[in-house]
Structure formats: C-alpha cells, structure tokens
Design a binder for these strands. Sequence first.
DNA 1: GGGTAATCGAGACGGTACGTCTTGTCTTAGG
DNA 2: CCTAAGACAAGACGTACCGTCTCGATTACCC
Lengths: 214, 214, 214, 214
Amino acid sequence: VARKPPDPARRNEHARASILAAAFDLCRDRGYEKTTIEAIAQRAGVGKQTIYRWWPSKGAVILEALNEAIGVATDFADSGDVTADLREQMTAVSRLFTSTDFGSVYSSAIGAAQDDADMAEGIVQDIIGPRFAAARKRLARAQEQNQIRAGADLDVIVELLYGALYYRYLIKTRPPDAEQVRIILDLAFAGLRPAEYADGRPYGSEVTAPKPTA
Amino acid sequence: VARKPPDPARRNEHARASILAAAFDLCRDRGYEKTTIEAIAQRAGVGKQTIYRWWPSKGAVILEALNEAIGVATDFADSGDVTADLREQMTAVSRLFTSTDFGSVYSSAIGAAQDDADMAEGIVQDIIGPRFAAARKRLARAQEQNQIRAGADLDVIVELLYGALYYRYLIKTRPPDAEQVRIILDLAFAGLRPAEYADGRPYGSEVTAPKPTA
Amino acid sequence: VARKPPDPARRNEHARASILAAAFDLCRDRGYEKTTIEAIAQRAGVGKQTIYRWWPSKGAVILEALNEAIGVATDFADSGDVTADLREQMTAVSRLFTSTDFGSVYSSAIGAAQDDADMAEGIVQDIIGPRFAAARKRLARAQEQNQIRAGADLDVIVELLYGALYYRYLIKTRPPDAEQVRIILDLAFAGLRPAEYADGRPYGSEVTAPKPTA
Amino acid sequence: VARKPPDPARRNEHARASILAAAFDLCRDRGYEKTTIEAIAQRAGVGKQTIYRWWPSKGAVILEALNEAIGVATDFADSGDVTADLREQMTAVSRLFTSTDFGSVYSSAIGAAQDDADMAEGIVQDIIGPRFAAARKRLARAQEQNQIRAGADLDVIVELLYGALYYRYLIKTRPPDAEQVRIILDLAFAGLRPAEYADGRPYGSEVTAPKPTA
DNA sequence: GGGTAATCGAGACGGTACGTCTTGTCTTAGG
DNA sequence: CCTAAGACAAGACGTACCGTCTCGATTACCC
C-alpha cells in the first residue's frame, strides 16, 4: 500500500510546532498512553489528519517533541580530569531525569518503547546514541591519557556508569541525584576491593581460599 | 462509594489460574497495552466481571501473573567467593531478561510502570525488592569478610551492578549476556583506574591539577 | 431436561409475599423492563434463586403480583338497567386504569405482553378473561330482556365498549374517564345515525345517493 | 453538559437507511426488547457510535423506522358513504395490524411506549395523530351531511371504532379482521338497542324502572 | 427427637449489552 | 493542495443483569 508522501515544502510550520508542544505537554501531564491523538489535535487546534499526515504514529510525534525539548546538550566537557567531567555530565543527566518536564516525558517514552520497536530504535538513535558516543569519546581520550586502564571495554563502562542512573530513573526506588553520581564514580574508579587487594592482579585471582559459608 | 470486598473463600481457583495464564500469554505475544481485559477474559474463558471483581486493574493482573511466573528465585548462592556468586546470579538475571517468556512480559510491565505509580510500586515490592535485598545481604557478608572495602555503599553497588543489566534490557541497544556480566564484575571490583593509581587514595585526590573548563 | 418441581408445601410464604410486593412496587416505579430480578431479590431481601425456583420468568412474577393486587372485582352488578350497570363497571375500570398503582403496573404488563406470548396468554386468562366473561354474561341477560337487540354479537360489543377505554389507556392521548364512558354508552346504545335513520332498516341501506366528494 | 448537535449536512444517508432497515427487521424478528443497539449496528454494518450520534435512544430509531415503513397512507377515501369509507379504511388498518412486518413492529413499539413517555408521545404524534385526524375529518363531513347525528362527539367516535381494533390487536384474544369491522360498523351506526327503542329518545330514558341494587 | 432433605440468603460464575471513548480512515468546505 | 472539522467502522472500556451454580445455615418433615 504505497502511500504518496506529502510535500514537505507545503508544510505548515505553525501547525507542526503546535502539535509538538501539545504532545509534549499532554505527555508530561497524563503520561504516554493517556495522551491521545485526539487530545493532541484538539489542544493544538489542529485536525487529526494533519497529525496522521506527517507522523506515522503517536510515538513518532512524542519522540520528535522530545528531541525539540532536550536541546543541544550532546556536548561533553574536557577539563583533563575524566572523573570531574563525568561527574559534571552525569549530574546534569540526573537533573534532567528528575526534571518535571523532560524527565517525565522521557520516561514515558522509554516505557512505550518496551513494546514498540520503532520507538525503541528512535530513542536509541536520536536521544541516547549521540550522548553515548560523546561519553565514549571522552573516555577514550582518558584511556589514551592513562586515566583509565588500557584494555577496559569503554562501551561497558558507559553502560555501567549510566545504567545506575537509568536504574533509579526507571525502577523508581529513589530518584538519581548528585550523591549517587559521586559514589558511583568513587566505586567505579577505585574498585570495590579493599586497598590491599587493589594490586592489579587480574580479576578472579583475588580470592585465595574461599571460606566455607553456613 | 465504599465497595464491599468479595469473599476470598468463594473464589474459583481455576478461574484465577486461567486468567493469570491468559494475561501472561497475551502480554508476551502482544505487549502490555494491546493486552485488553476483554481478550484476557475471552482467552481464559471467563466473564470480564470475574477479572474486575478480584483485581483493581489490568496492571495488577499482569503483576500477579509475573509473580507466578518468576518462581522462587530470590535465593542467592554463597560459595565464599562474592564475585563468583554475583557472576552466577547476574548471569541468571541476564538469561531471564533475554527469555522470550518472562523477559518480554517483565519489560512490558516496567514500561507500563513509567506512567502507573501502582505498577511501579508493585514491581519494586514484589519483584525487585526481595532480589535486591538478597543481593545486598550477600554483599554485606562479603564486606564483613573484607572482600569488599569497608565503607562502600552497598545499595549503590547493587544499583551499579544490576543497573548495567537493566540498561541493556530496557534501552535495547544490545541484550545483556554473560560476557557483559564478566566485564562488569572485572571493572567494578578492580576499578577503572590503571594499576599505579589503584592505591586506595580516596576518590578525588588522584588528579593533582584539574584544568578549569569554560 | 426434565426439572424436578419444588415441593410447594415447603414454600416460604413470607418470601413469596415479599417478592410479589417488591416486584409490584418496582414495576410501578420504574416500569417493567427496568424492573430486574436482581433488584426484586434485593428489595425483597431474598436470594435470586428463590425467585427462579418458584417462577419461570420475570413476567410470571409480575403477573402474579398483578393478580394479588387487582382484588376480587370480577363481579358485575345487575340492577336491571344494563346501561347503568355497564356505566358503573366501566367507570370502575377507567378509575383502575388511571390509578397510580394498578394502572401503571398493568399497562407495563400489557406492554411486555406485546413481545412475550406467555405474558399475553397470562393476562388474557387471569386478568381479562374473567371480567370479559362477566360483562358478556350481563349483556346476554340484557339481550334476553330485549334491552339489546337480538342477533347482536355480544363478544364484539364487549370489545367495542372496553376497546375504547383500552385505547385511551394504552395509546395515552388522554386518560379514560367517566365522561368518556357516558358518551360511549350513549353513542353505542342509541347508534351514530340521526334519529330519522334509526328505523331498523338493515345496515348498508341507509345512504341513498349523496356522493359529492371533493 | 450541553452537547453540540451534529451537523445534518455531513450525515451519511446510506448509514441512516441501513440502520433503519436493520432496526426494523430485528424488531420484527425478535421484538423490541431483544433488539439491541449492538445488533442493529452489526447488522447494518455500522459503528455503534453512528447510532448514538443521530438518535437519542433505541426507541427513536424504531419509531423512525416505523415511520419509513408505514408509507403515506394518511389519506381517507370519500365516496360519499361514510360507513363504506370507514369500512374500507378500518379493514385496511386491520390488515396492517395483522401483517407480519408492520404489524409486529408497531405492537412492539406500543408495548415499549407503556413505560417510555418519549416513545408514547412519538407514536401519538407521528403514527396515530395524522390518521386520527383524517378519520375525524371524514366523520365531520359525514356529520355535516347528516349521516351522523349532530352533537355526537367525533373524537369519542373515532376512539370507539378504532379502539375495538386496537383492543384485539394489543390484547391478542383474536386478531382483528374484516368481519369485526363489519359488525362494529353495524352496531355502532344502528345502535345496540332493539328497533322499537331506537326512537331518538336521549340516552338514559329508555329504561323506565331500573331496579336498585345492593 | 434425631436425621435428612429441601429451602433460604448470599453471591461468584460465564455471558451479553449497555453507553462512552479512541483509533485510523474518509469526506467536506474554506483559504 | 493543505487545512480544521468531524463523520465513519471498529472495538475496548468498566458497569449492570442475566440465569446457573455453589455455599453454609436454617427449617420442617419422616422415621
């Protein structure tokens, strides 16, 4: 059922902006599922068809609205101190997660992505991808400067650091915050082992005689 | 309009089991939002009212179905070697996450929890809570045995280790697996820093001259 | 599927009376269709099964309730003057029709009978039959006494006289009343024709040649 | 909660016709109460909302369907002979009442009207009103031509004549037919009294010595 | 006068229909 | 051609009753 795509040149920019704003606000206030196309059209003062014409699904609207809202923050400072830079950026992320605007819409979108492959792909590509890459790039430089040990898998490191933030964000036991970021960086960089074990022996050799447990 | 709660003694166990099984299967096949009470009732061979009588919402049905499906796996082995035990348990979790049954229903449920506070609370209490506590308990024993440095915040450690698994599970860049677990444990226990830095100095003192950034 | 009939000896008379009273009141207040078995049971303080045990349908309950309510008025006075007796009885019927109790329940029942053959048969047999027979019997005596012309079809006469009352009762243009009864009896006994035509010539010969139609 | 009425210009005539036909057929086959909006929509190939949008109730749909089905037969012949014209029209009505289509739907509708004031009003206004008026007009002309005695209450006469048809139609002892019409007209025009009494004396004076009853 | 069988109030059960809401498509009228 | 507006077919929502069923707890009859 090949559909003729509409001509982008004729697009009404005002309608587009109204729709994105309405979608964002509704999703913030009611959550993703209760944000209906009907309601978006009504609040934007727009016909439903105008939405269906330009976006393939509700998720696509929300995703685009998210992209408009998140701003330009893909950048990652480089002060020379990788932990300081990470702390700064991760703290910013934790603030973003706990913000009432972006934070609540984004979690809604991630929620929707659990059963919507397009949404999941969109989030990874548009939101997470660039920021993940920026973080990874910063870590790579740190690794070159011997602030991170050679051979460490940088992708897994990013997942480790940010995963802890996402965990609190999505599982909602308690919100992420600057204190969590501080502790995470301390633990991750220094390692979990006591100092006497922190001697560079390869992982797995640190326990000499496993104690029998009750 | 206080409603009189139904008498649990008169409950039809067969109907209950059918409903949970139907809910689980539908949620696995279609995802949470497309799983309708109507369809659950139909597939379970049950009247809709029987669902509404015993559960306050669709989410509550799915949550109970999840609880039935997950089994008793709150336990946490104690071989004396905390990293081995963590590796074993985290690998099991990663397998659970990638299973087609539990894994897909659970992610749907977490997705729904993003805009449903009751669902979020239920997941934390019923699914995550006991397992988080078991992990934390194991870590506490390890800390007593000096396998984990004194003073480390055990809650944050659990969040750090499992957060990375949840990240891949929910963000869907790539699925969690045993290799990820291995690397995470290596990184976390040994620390990110090169060996010469792993000297036990408190975090934040390792960089002598951080460059001020704009 | 032969069903064993319950033993009437063990029947709880109190329950029976409560059910009939509740059914009558509900039907009076809400009409037949909105009178549910559920509501009858509730108001009567009775289990639903007690109703289903003793009556085959809601209609049967209402019909029995009607029969209890209508009293013994099958009798028909005989003063020697048939028009006076008819006037008396028909006026009583018109009062019954406009009563808020019996009148509204009875019309509900007739309404239900339009699509319920059992109800229709029950009404004819229990309510109308005896009264129709009494009226017909009174007319037969009048015919013997030459107050009604010989050869007149008494069944049709009863239908004619009471049909006019039922018409107003069921079609609800205006309610039946004593004045209507008076006019009906005047018209019916004296005939519609002007006096000069009232000469006993057989019907059909009275009009000689007056057709100037528009 | 004032609701904005829909715009009649945008109405889908095909849907309207399908709905009326489906409603009529279902009501004919199952009766009024078992005719559900759900079934009408299904049979008409229409969404339920389309019914709820344009009609306030099931009764209104059926009533409109009846009006479509009854055709234009408000007219009343004028051959100059009022009894012949009445016989013709009343016989046509009795045929209509016993028809399997209109007859069964109309009685269902009258049944529903017993507990539905809107339905009752609709029937009187749309169905009965125009035909009653036509009959009354014909009688008025007959009265001018001295075929009906002066002073006779024409409304009551129409109720008398048609009431007998409605009586058999709604009470269902036996169906109305041409023979009933013939006898009614004979009785009504000639009067019930024997010829020797038919002398034009006012009603009430014909019995010289009424016996007082208890 | 104790055993037992049916009735009772209560209400859970598998269903059907209610009237409302939203979906995504289609149609209409105006700029 | 795009727009706002909204009718349309479809179908899920949560509620109300349907008629059947199963519970204990009184009865009330029989032996």
